[in-house]
């Protein structure tokens, strides 16, 4: 009996040692990091859409740092929530639908011949992604647009659409599931 106990003890100690070594390695290779708010802000998608209820990503980052829920950012979706959960050391939860649902990436597109040049959208855009002067047609710089949707409502003539970003073979994610596939129309020889 004592032997069995000894054996179990020995195993336990060994397991502890290996665990401690691994843990030590994890600590040793850990990188020094920025203040918490910055780190959270890094993770947030910077869409600046305000769907979280705060006027931009940084204010939401501050709110999270002060204990707000991490599942209020629809553009970031589950990936962002997961990262936030890792950072904050809490459990990931599903996106809070009250703030919206995760959607495909979109950008704003102004139907230029309908635009009356009222500059309302410029004032609404949080990242200055719209170009134009008063009474001239406006246009969206696609590369700068975060797809936040904030310019759509103010437009009095409703000429702004949110269009999904076209996927190209460069950005294709190896998703075979929803591919259009043809057949081989060969006549029997």
């Amino acid at each position: 009996m004592t032997f069995t106990l000894l054996a179990i003890l020995a195993f336990a100690i060994l397991a502890l040692c290996f665990g401690a070594l691994l843990g030590y390695a994890a600590i040793k290779f850990k990188v020094q990091s920025d203040p918490l708010v910055d780190q959270i802000d890094q993770i947030l998608p910077q869409t600046q859409c305000g769907q979280c209820g705060y006027p931009g990503c940084r204010p939401y980052a501050e709110a999270i740092a002060n204990g707000d829920e991490i599942n209020k950012c629809p553009p970031g979706g589950d990936a962002t929530i997961k990262e936030l959960a890792d950072l904050m050391g809490v459990d990931a939860k599903p996106l809070d639908a009250a703030h919206g649902i995760e959607d495909v990436k979109k950008v704003a597109y102004i139907r230029e011949d309908e635009c009356i040049g009222c500059t309302k959208c410029i004032q609404a855009c949080p990242v200055d992604a719209i170009l134009g002067a008063a009474k001239h047609m406006h246009t969206v710089i696609i590369d700068e647009c975060t797809g936040c949707d904030l310019c759509v409502d103010p437009c009095p003539v409703d000429c702004i659409d949110m269009v999904p970003l076209a996927s190209s073979s460069q950005t294709w994610q190896w998703n075979f599931e929803n591919m259009t596939v043809g057949d081989i129309p060969v006549k029997q020889v």
Partner: peptide, 9 residues
């Protein structure tokens, strides 16, 4: 005729 099958190499 069945569809072409696609897969990763």
């Amino acid at each position: 005729m069945s569809k072409l099958s696609v897969a990763s190499s």
